[in-house]
């Protein structure tokens, strides 16, 4: 324990080291540390923001999906309805066409039968006249009764 002038020398060294640290070591290092802390905080905030954005985008995409599904369902329903309508229309048209064809056929049949009746009537009249002629040839003058016979054939 012999105290001597070394103590002064050591105090000077110590003071120089303190000054040196205070001037050249401490400020740049703490500054860099603060800067890094700021960077990390910014990075975390950005990550947080990114996460929020992603959630929003996911929400949007699922919304879009739901909407698309809904639209597709609507379109399907609409086409279903339209199909039923088309079938109904076709059915109605077919029925109408069938009625028309039936009516035409009926008319033709009627006309045909009428014509046949006319022909028949003509033939029956001719037959009746010729029969009557044969019967009456001998008794009745053809000429005298021609008016009567033509009137009769017209009546038939």
């Amino acid at each position: 324990m012999n105290i001597n002038a070394t103590i002064i020398g050591q105090a000077i060294t110590f003071a120089i080291l303190i000054w040196f640290t205070m001037k050249f070591v401490w400020p740049p290092v703490t500054h860099a540390l603060e800067e890094r802390a700021q960077k990390i905080a910014d990075g975390l905030a950005a990550a947080e923001r990114g996460k929020a954005d992603l959630a929003k985008a996911e929400q949007r995409s699922s919304d879009a999906l739901v909407e698309a599904r809904q639209k597709a369902a609507e379109i399907i329903a609409l086409s279903e309805k339209r199909r039923a309508e088309i079938i109904e229309e076709a059915k109605a048209e077919a029925v109408a066409e069938a009625d028309r064809v039936k009516a035409a056929a009926k008319a033709e049949v009627e006309q045909e039968s009428f014509r046949a009746r006319e022909v028949l009537r003509g033939q029956v009249a001719a037959l009746a006249v010729s029969g009557a002629e044969r019967i009456l040839r001998r008794e009745i003058d053809t000429k005298a009764h021609a008016d009567l016979l033509s009137a009769l054939s017209a009546e038939l």
């Binding site: 060294t13 040196f20 050249f24 860099a32």
Partner: peptide
């Protein structure tokens, strides 16, 4: 005492200074 402590001070604070001069926040 004087020389040893001064040399150690030079080494330690020299290293710290060299780090502080080239310090990066990255």
């Amino acid at each position: 005492t004087l020389v040893t402590s001064a040399v150690l001070g030079l080494i330690v604070f020299g290293v710290m200074y060299s780090v502080a001069r080239r310090i990066t926040s990255g």
